[in-house]
């Protein structure tokens, strides 16, 4: 084989190695394990019905700070933190804050009985067959996702939150807008 042909073969092989090897290695570095929803990612889209008969999509709130809270009436810390979220909602609504409280696929009557008389003004969304929570890879209840106005996730908080916990994070989101 002539020298130039040999060089071409060398370069082709090295390019192949760089391409395939680079792909394999970068996959180990950049792909998050278990496609868990991580800060910096765009959280999964959803379109769900609210208790007052509207249909709401996450995409509707692009450009605004959004808090997505998963709750169930069977989960005492979820129930405890709901008034705290309500106070924060009242305080920061004028700054564009939206809180979407997604119920954990409970039935109509349970949700209705729970919400009645609680004076919650933020939308209560109804998940069906645990589909949305599965897409969000929920591991425990309650879990709250703080989403920046640009649509990417700022933080995932697992467990019940106090008003101070919420405010600290909401202020960060508002600063971004």
């Amino acid at each position: 084989m002539k020298g130039s042909a040999r060089k071409t073969v060398q370069i082709i092989i090295f390019l192949g190695v760089l391409l395939l090897g680079g792909y394999a290695i970068s996959k180990t570095l950049f792909v998050s394990k278990e496609d868990f929803v991580r800060p910096g990612d765009k959280p999964p889209a959803f379109t769900l019905a609210t208790t007052d008969g509207r249909t709401v999509s996450l995409a509707d709130y692009e450009g605004r700070p959004v808090v997505v809270n998963f709750w169930g009436s069977f989960c005492p810390p979820c129930v405890r933190e709901m008034p705290e979220f309500q106070r924060q909602y009242d305080k920061w609504k004028s700054e564009g804050l939206e809180i979407l409280a997604i119920n954990l696929s409970e039935d109509d009557l349970t949700v209705k009985n729970f919400v009645d008389g609680k004076n919650l003004t933020y939308p209560i969304l109804r998940d069906v067959n645990e589909e949305t929570e599965k897409r969000y890879r929920l591991r425990s209840y309650p879990t709250t996702f703080f989403i920046k106005p640009d649509g990417t996730l700022e933080e995932v908080y697992e467990g019940g939150m106090t008003e101070a916990d919420i405010e600290e994070r909401v202020l960060k989101l508002i600063k971004e807008s």
């Binding site: 092989i13 190695v17 395939l20 090897g21 394999a24 290695i25 996959k27 180990t28």
Partner: peptide, 9 residues
């Protein structure tokens, strides 16, 4: 993975 790629090369 890097080791495997190097062995392959």
């Amino acid at each position: 993975v890097l080791l495997l790629v190097m062995i392959g090369t």
